[in-house]
């Protein structure tokens, strides 16, 4: 279990914002910070797509690279987390992140959030004792230490958003695409999903219906 990741299936996301609400509630995230948000592309047009975006826990994270205090660290599970006691709230990580994941609190919540950058923790808390009151206040709940996955993914009603080990997620996505009957022709299929047995056979369980 080396690389924990999120994957959002744009074919399934219905823009319900259940993941956003679950995250806000679970971690008691103050006003002004969005650890997760749903982005809709071509909104209002036929075929619009939505995806849920948060920290992607990059393998080569730019936030880690630019942090002047080196307060970011990577866990054994591949999660990119940061120490709020070392963070100076400069916001460099916000500018470096292509997903806008690290957020700086504004308005009245700035002092409540201690003027530190805040980001998705993959429900893994942060430095300090797992499940402690201090960890809850600073980083939110540590569900991973309870043997659970991030609540945003577990609450997703259509299972558009899934979380876990990259290999397991790849297997799930591969099976979905093969059952849908389309998507395997996408560029990068073999890079992302390898030459699995299903892919080698070119198996398509449900062929796309022709109009």
């Amino acid at each position: 279990m080396a690389r924990m990741k999120f994957v959002c299936d744009a074919e399934r996301c219905i823009n319900c914002n259940g993941c956003v609400t679950a995250c806000k509630n679970e971690h008691e995230v103050p006003w002004g910070i969005q650890r997760r948000r749903v982005v809709t592309l071509n909104e209002g047009q036929p075929g619009e797509k939505s995806i849920s975006v948060a920290c992607m826990h990059c393998s080569d994270a730019p936030c880690m690279a630019v942090c002047p205090t080196n307060c970011f660290y990577r866990t054994e599970e591949g999660l990119v987390l940061h120490d709020k006691d070392k963070c100076i709230g400069c916001g460099y990580c916000f500018y470096a992140c292509p997903f806008g994941a690290p957020q700086f609190p504004n308005g009245a919540s700035a002092f409540a959030a201690r003027g530190k950058m805040d980001k998705c923790t993959f429900c893994a808390g942060g430095p300090g004792e797992n499940g402690s009151e201090e960890e809850l206040k600073k980083y939110g709940r540590n569900r991973l230490a309870e043997g659970k996955l991030p609540l945003c993914a577990e609450m997703c009603s259509t299972k558009a958003l899934i979380a876990g080990d990259a290999e397991v997620l790849s297997d799930i996505m591969r099976e979905r695409v093969l059952r849908r009957g389309y998507g395997a022709e996408l560029w990068g299929w073999r890079v992302a999903y390898g030459d699995g047995k299903q892919a080698q056979r070119g198996q398509r369980v449900h062929a796309p219906e022709k109009p």
Partner: peptide, 29 residues
């Protein structure tokens, strides 16, 4: 990193250091 140490998720109860039990629980989910 300059971050303080972060114990692994399986270090504390309910898993209390049992890594394989934690991995099995997360894998099931």
């Amino acid at each position: 990193s300059t971050a303080a140490s972060d114990p692994p998720p399986y270090a504390t109860p309910p898993f209390a250091g049992n890594r394989s039990a934690w991995e099995a629980a997360v894998s099931t989910r």
